[in-house]
């Protein structure tokens, strides 16, 4: 078995992670403003999950993005690309200045993560419901090749509408893919309506549990708790792990929180200033 040296399982430094999450949110807001791009609230919703993953959990080396032993992180809710791009740039996968090319003509940063183009992006996403099947394939490849890397897939709640998610869920359980962890960004909003008024997701934890997963509810904005739970994969249950992360769409900026207009809206310069103040960045 090829085991990569995993970062020592230090207890997460919650305060440091929190500060990092605020910086990430600031960057995302700046990008959304400059590009006047949609999906800002979707990106803010999952900023803490990304922070926990990239600044504590993942066994990765930005200098070696193709290392076969690296942990895989798949942003299955690809419309939160701004959050992923900002994360990867801040981690050093590519120059931070490249974020200025987000949505600009001829650049590498279109509005969804691209295939085979940008270091650190494990899979092209944007069509919802693809990340988990891909992740299962990656985990099985690791098993077959004797590489014990872990696979994390971040799904949106609306994405749980897709049948392909549940096909993969049953597959992963049957294959006992204990190296696979799904985090569901459960912000209770989809693009045009409340999630549970669109398709009935609730009780979401019970559903994942019934599909054979070790499923837990978690506060999706408690970076420390997220870091601990994700770091603990595989957790000895012998099952793939689902973290149903309760989140608030637009989290971090009072006038965006739980207001689904920010699924499509981009902030004005004034709103950016206000947001930065609230995030303690000004």
């Amino acid at each position: 078995m090829n085991v990569a040296v995993r970062s020592t399982a230090n207890a997460p430094d919650a305060a440091a992670l929190k500060a990092q999450a605020a910086r990430l949110r600031g960057k995302i807001i700046e990008m959304s403003h400059k590009a006047q791009a949609a999906h800002l609230a979707s990106s803010l919703s999952c900023a803490d999950v990304l922070t926990a993953a990239y600044w504590h959990v993942l066994n990765i080396d930005p200098g070696k993005p193709a290392d076969p032993l690296r942990d895989r992180f798949i942003l299955s809710k690809g419309h939160a690309a701004a959050a992923l791009f900002a994360t990867l740039a801040m981690k050093g996968y590519f120059p931070i200045e490249e974020l200025d090319t987000y949505c600009q003509d001829g650049g590498r940063l279109a509005e969804h993560p691209p295939a085979n183009l940008l270091p650190g992006v494990e899979a092209a996403t944007g069509s919802l419901g693809h990340g988990l099947p891909l992740g299962c394939g990656m985990a099985l490849a690791g098993r077959i090749k004797g590489e014990s890397f872990r696979v994390f897939a971040l799904l949106s709640d609306g994405e749980n509408n897709e049948g392909s998610v549940w096909e993969a869920a049953m597959f992963a359980a049957a294959q006992k893919l204990e190296n696979v962890c799904v985090v569901v960004d459960y912000n209770k909003w989809q693009a045009t309506a409340r999630s549970n008024e669109t398709l009935m997701l609730a009780p979401l934890r019970d559903k994942w549990a019934a599909f054979g997963w070790d499923a837990h509810e978690i506060d999706g904005h408690d970076v420390g708790a997220l870091a601990e739970a994700m770091q603990n994969i595989p957790n000895g249950s012998g099952k793939p792990v689902a973290l149903i992360a309760h989140t608030v769409k637009g989290k971090g900026v009072s006038f965006m929180e739980d207001d689904n207009n920010w699924h499509y809206r981009a902030p004005t310069a004034e709103e950016v200033v206000k947001a930065n103040k609230e995030l303690g960045l000004a």
């Binding site: 791009a37 690809g78 949505c103 279109a110 509005e111 969804h112 993560p113 691209p114 295939a115 092209a124 996403t125 944007g126 069509s127």
Partner: peptide, 14 residues
């Protein structure tokens, strides 16, 4: 909606 490259900016998934 969004045939061809109407949603070019959203990338190949769209």
């Amino acid at each position: 909606v969004g045939a061809g490259l109407a949603y070019s900016g959203l990338g190949p998934t769209h």
